[in-house]
Every structure is written in C-alpha cells, then in structure tokens.
Simulated assay, not measured.
Amino acid sequence: MIRRLLALATLFAALLAPATASAYWEYGHETIGRIAYLNVKPETRAAIDRLLSHSALLDTPTCPARTVAEASVWPDCIKKLGDRFSYAYSWHYQNVNICKPFNLKPACKDGNCVSAQIERDVRLLKDRKKVPLRERVQALAFLIHFVGDLHQPLHAADHGDLGGNKLKATYGIYSTPKLNLHMIWDGYLAERAITTPPSLVKRYPAAVRKKIAAGTVKDWSRQNWEVSRDIAYASAEGGDPCAKPEPKHVTLSNKTIAKLIPAARLQVERAGLRLAKLLDEALG
C-alpha cells in the first residue's frame, strides 16, 4: 500500500512539473500539425514531405524535424541549443494588452512577434527561386509551430503578467509553487481538451474548413486576443479582468475547467485548419 501511494505521489509530481516548451506542450503542437496535414491538398502534403526529407540541413540532430509532428515542436526544442537560435525567442508570442484597444504594433516591433513571423514564414516558403532550401525547411517548421502558438490565448495577449506566467494558479485540486495560468493553458487544459472525445484529428468538411480558416493572420490575432481577455483571464479571475486589481493567485475549479473544454478544443481546431490554409497558400 505504501509503495502504491509513493508511486501515485511520484506520478502527480511528474504531471505538475513545469515543461520547457514555449506554448502548447508537445501533444498540443503535434495535434495541430496532424490536423493540418490531414486537411491540406494532396500536392501540399507531398511538398511538405519533400521539404521535411531535407530536415538534416537544419543541423540539429538532437531536435529532429523529419515529420510534421517533429517539426511542430522543433522551434521549442532548439531553445536548448542556446545562442544558435536565441534570436527567435520573442517570435513565439505577442504581448497585446487586453485592457487597451487591440493594437499589434507595440507588441510586434521590428517583426519580433508570432503573427509577423507567421506571415514571414509563408513568404519564405512561397519563394522557391531565391530562398535556399535550408531556410525553407526552417520556415516550414517555424510556421507549423507558430500557428499553434498564436492560438494559445495567453500567447496572443497579456495582462501585465507575461501572458499569465506571473499569475499563480490552482488547477482543480492541484497546485504547486510553479504552477501558473499560462502553464494551465499550455498543457493541462489543452491536453484534457484534446483527449476529450470526439477526436479533433480528422478530415473536416470543406464548408467547415472554409468557415474556420476565413480571415487573415491579423484577424486571427484579434480573435485570439479576445479569447484571452473574455475566456482565459475572465474565467480565472471571475469576471472582467480589467475592472479590478490584478490578483496574485487564481483557482480554476473543476466546474470552470469543464466549461473551458469546448473553448480549448476550438482553439486547437482553429489552429489546425488555419495552418492547413496557410500551407496550401505557400506550398500547394
């Protein structure tokens, strides 16, 4: 009995340990990549496979990108390589203030934000003549990852707390000193949402793909900023997050978590189908 209790304690500790990924943890990014891969045109899928067959050009053997699933987490994996890719750290998010009118310019100075990099990666992939193969492979991996990042609401907006990184949180009955609201949306909530049936990884009807993928990267940025303000922060803080002082700690009850599952699922679905649209535009 004591051994079983110790084993359970170890398991819970592992589940609550902070991850090093920048946005959606591995399962979230891989799921978004798989949704996109199933929903692109056949010629786009072939082009993706051709590019990733040259992933060795990236010269990151500890961070492979041979498949869409591997490429989806490559931009987080390379953070461990230090100065080689340190220039890309700010490309994973955009701190757009939820308590001011939507404005990307302050958060995207010199293109150093996730939405600007998504647009840049599409341009690089389209240019088959001037852009070297290695750079196009890298742009593909970044694009797959960054569209996922943009749809993690706390990477699309900020409340003066680094997208919830400074806001301590309790998730159901679980809490550790390092657990914060950002981590919950990165991993615990996303993973629960993805594993809630039915599966999000499927071929979607053309009408659904068209409806969800409509708009521009800027439109999607605004929508995800709204989701951050009206759902992610509001549900955690019990109302309008801009109407009262910022809390130091929030608790997401089991009831609140259950209510957030549909919203979290929709964000993953949106990311996958919008990524498919961009890949078709760039490679189809």
Score class of each variant (00 low, 15 high):
198 P>K: 09
200 L>I: 08
193 A>G: 11
282 A>P: 12
273 L>M: 09
196 T>N: 09
270 R>M: 08
51 L>V: 07
194 I>G: 11
205 P>W: 02
211 K>Q: 10
97 N>S: 13
173 I>K: 15
157 A>G: 13
152 Q>L: 12
128 R>D: 03
226 E>S: 15
230 D>M: 07
140 L>W: 04
73 V>L: 09
264 A>G: 12
49 D>H: 14
7 A>C: 11
106 P>M: 00
4 R>T: 13
257 I>V: 13
3 R>I: 11
281 E>K: 15
253 S>H: 13
112 N>E: 01
66 R>H: 08
68 V>F: 00
52 L>S: 05
112 N>M: 06
209 R>N: 03
181 L>D: 06
166 K>P: 09
98 I>W: 01
284 G>Q: 10
267 Q>P: 01
111 G>K: 03
45 R>E: 00
69 A>C: 02
80 K>A: 14
232 A>V: 04
69 A>G: 08
67 T>E: 05
104 L>P: 02
270 R>Y: 05
83 D>A: 15
151 H>I: 08
158 D>M: 14
254 N>M: 14
172 G>P: 03
238 G>P: 00
103 N>L: 00
18 P>C: 08
197 P>S: 01
57 L>G: 06
150 L>Y: 01
213 A>M: 03
254 N>V: 11
130 K>T: 13
36 A>M: 07
208 V>K: 01
242 C>N: 06
241 P>K: 09
11 L>Y: 10
125 L>I: 00
